[in-house]
Nucleic acid binder design. Sequence first.
RNA 1: GGUCUCGUAGCUCAGCUGGAUAGAGCAGCAGCCUUCUAAGCUGCGGGUCGCAGGUUCGAAUCCUGCCGGGAUCACCA
Length: 595
Amino acid sequence: MLDQILAQQTIAAVKEIFDTDIGQELNLIQKTRKEFDGDLTIVVFPLTKILRKSPQLIGEELGKYLQTHSGMVQAYRVVSGYVNITIKPSFWKDVFIRNYGDPSFGILKPAAEDPVVIEYSSPNTNKPLHLGHIRNNLIGYSLARILGACGENVVKVNLVNDRGIHICKSMLAWQRWSRGETPESAGMKGDHLIGKYYVLFENAYREQVKELVGAGMTEEEALRQAPLMGDAQRMLKKWEERDKETLALWHRMNQWAYNGFDETYRQMGVDFDRIYYESDTYLLGKELVEEGLRQGLLQRKEDGSVWADLTAEGLDWKLLIRSDGTSVYMTQDLGTAQMRYDEFHPKKLIYVVGNEQIYHFDVLKLILKKLGKRWSDSIYHLSYGMVELPEGKMKSREGKVVDADDLMQEMFVTAGKMTRELGKLEDFSDEEASGLFRQVGLAALKYFILKVDPMKTMVFNPEESIDFNGNTGPFIQYTYARIQSVLRKAAVPEMSGNDFFSIDYQPIPKEISLIKILAVFPSTVREAGEMYSPAVIAAYVYDLAREYNQFYHDHSILKATEPAQVHFRIELSRFVGNVIKTAMGLLGIEVPEKM
RNA sequence: GGUCUCGUAGCUCAGCUGGAUAGAGCAGCAGCCUUCUAAGCUGCGGGUCGCAGGUUCGAAUCCUGCCGGGAUCACCA
């Protein structure tokens, strides 16, 4: 905001001094590097070519002009092509006074516009959530909050993949080998129980394939011919034919999975406004395909399978209906997208889905377009990178996955251990303590994941990754808790209006540094929204917390020398605390009053 | 092989819409608690920004090529 004002003033100054119009897009203003005096810097090099004058001369002229005309420039120094500008301290004080009491500082109210629909999580009901889902959920939930703070009308949706061949695998295995085991009888969360049978199926299936290969079959053929696979396919067929017994089993087991997921989401602190089930949308997808077929936009082969010809678009043919009449993932997604569009008419349809599905979404958009859906352009695939372990990719088949429930549980335990070691539990009840462990443990996990650019592949080391010191969630929570502690001790009522600021108090440099960071919070939120990146918020709030801790260490708040300073510092601290809380909220992270 | 993506300190990551001497945290070393919470603060060491060209007054950032890792190109989801 301040940089934009200065940019405008600089453009005006150039016009005034040199009688030359320069573009808006020149990007002349940057933050002054900390080894130089000043707040903002004008880079004059881009102007030298246009004005045909030396950097030194341009710099001097601009500095002189701005100092007398700008109203906010205290001083300037020209250093080898850079004009370092110091903003008047009173200006920073004004920024503070205008905003310090605003609880929604940086947060815009939702506009009455078409909503932004954001899908995340998208679990399969054949196995429990793992670390990859955690990243997905955290990014999706945080992004929903950030876009909301940017004034968007956000609808959070989940799409449960509750049908398909993989679901049949779990069902089949359970039917064969469970002897009627239930989550209650096994003492397991439902999603974990189902996952167990999915693994059983995969193991038995691989066993069969190995045998067939041993008997002389090619691997490819064996994968297709193994009896278990045939059984699963027949089950899927029966399911699509609404076979009563199959449906009953399906309902029963899916309910187990949902109960398990609900528990995981509750622990994680994410939620949804609307849940879609693919069993409800795949038929609509089939209808769309039938319609496309009638209009000659799609093609049917002799064996009955239906395809989209994307060769004109530089891609291949894409299957939409199998020869046995059952539908594939793409078919379902067509229906899901249509249903969402019909329901919300969103201006943007965001899918938080892993980068392994980039191709899938390219194809999805193309097929929708082919079917005449103009709104396919509003689809945005937010493709995030995979989470890898130190030894490489997670492999579900080899049991090399970090389970979401286990991981969160470990986080709570570790947080408890840390807290006890630090002796911080004196005035906590047991209930308060376990609440704190949850807050701190989750903060460590969430912040660790969200501080990384969503697009990038990241490495998670279960033993070492989670820290509670340094650039971490607990560090930021700690800063907040410290502030609250000071405020409790201060025991002065929150100031109303500007009463004590009429006193002629000028903030010291460290206080100004803090105000400078606070001042860019609104634009930071907007940037995070534009970039679809919670990492921007994470970097910001860490920066703020670090700066505050330095301030806190170097300067006494309650024992400052004069009353005006005490009051100012209390309100400054409160302001910092509020922004920390807001920013952490945008990441889906809670902050404790004490820790 | 085609397409896409990533490569920055021992490790995990910022910086990437071009700007001054490339930043944090962890790990290592050395300090700071009779004073508002030491999950904190201060200092030190640590870099051919994968390599080579190009564009530019200026490149970690943009372009090209190469090397290395990953993803994807299923009648899986």
